[in-house]
């Protein structure tokens, strides 16, 4: 399975994982350094709060795409669990298709939003950097989530199993979440 699509998929997965992990570690360092600076040296990082906000935006939207890839999503399966395998499969396929559509739409709206705040030149208050640079991650996050749902839709059409994402097959264990 060494086709280009597979490789791209692996590379983006690794990249996402790196961004998420690094974002979380940076949050920790940022807060710790700020508090130590304030208490020990009477010096606060004026941008600390803002940096954490940026990091949380990045982690949330990249992490969302990553969660979709891993087939981890919060959903209520009370009714779903009562259906037959065939009906579950049809429902999952339909959900994958419509959720993909929604994700692409949100990605498009996010893209428009990013353009808007670029046009009005919004600068962050502490670091004075253009905010759109950070928020550009949002359309990407939704787009990748959309791709994941779309490929799960296709996998469900091509294979007999129920696919939660491109590479995650539903089992009894991961009906709601799996890692």
């Amino acid at each position: 399975m060494k086709n280009p699509l597979f490789i791209i998929n692996r590379v983006t997965e690794k990249l996402e994982a790196f961004i998420i992990g690094a974002g979380i570690i940076l949050m920790m360092l940022n807060s710790v350094i700020n508090a130590m600076g304030r208490y020990l040296f009477n010096y606060s990082l004026y941008f600390s709060e803002e940096l954490n906000q940026f990091l949380i935006v990045i982690v949330t939207f990249v992490g969302f795409a990553y969660a979709v890839r891993m087939g981890r999503n919060i959903r209520m399966t009370a009714v779903y669990d009562m259906l037959s395998f065939k009906k579950q499969k049809i429902l999952t396929t339909f959900i994958a298709f419509s959720t993909a559509t929604l994700m692409f739409y949100l990605s498009y709206e996010a893209y428009l939003y990013v353009l808007d705040i670029r046009d009005i030149n919004r600068l962050s208050s502490a670091l004075q950097i253009p905010v759109y640079l950070i928020y550009s991650i949002i359309p990407f996050g939704f787009f990748i989530a959309g791709l994941q749902y779309a490929s799960s839709f296709i996998m469900n059409l091509l294979h007999p199993e129920i696919y939660l994402s491109f590479s995650v097959i539903e089992t009894k264990d991961n009906q709601d979440m799996q890692l």
Partner: peptide, 21 residues
């Protein structure tokens, strides 16, 4: 282990925060 924990943390955070958002 720490990097794995950080990735897992980010994943859980994102799943919850996207809904907060």
């Amino acid at each position: 282990d720490i990097t794995k924990a950080a990735l897992n943390t980010g994943l859980i955070t994102a799943v919850v925060f996207i809904l907060v958002g």
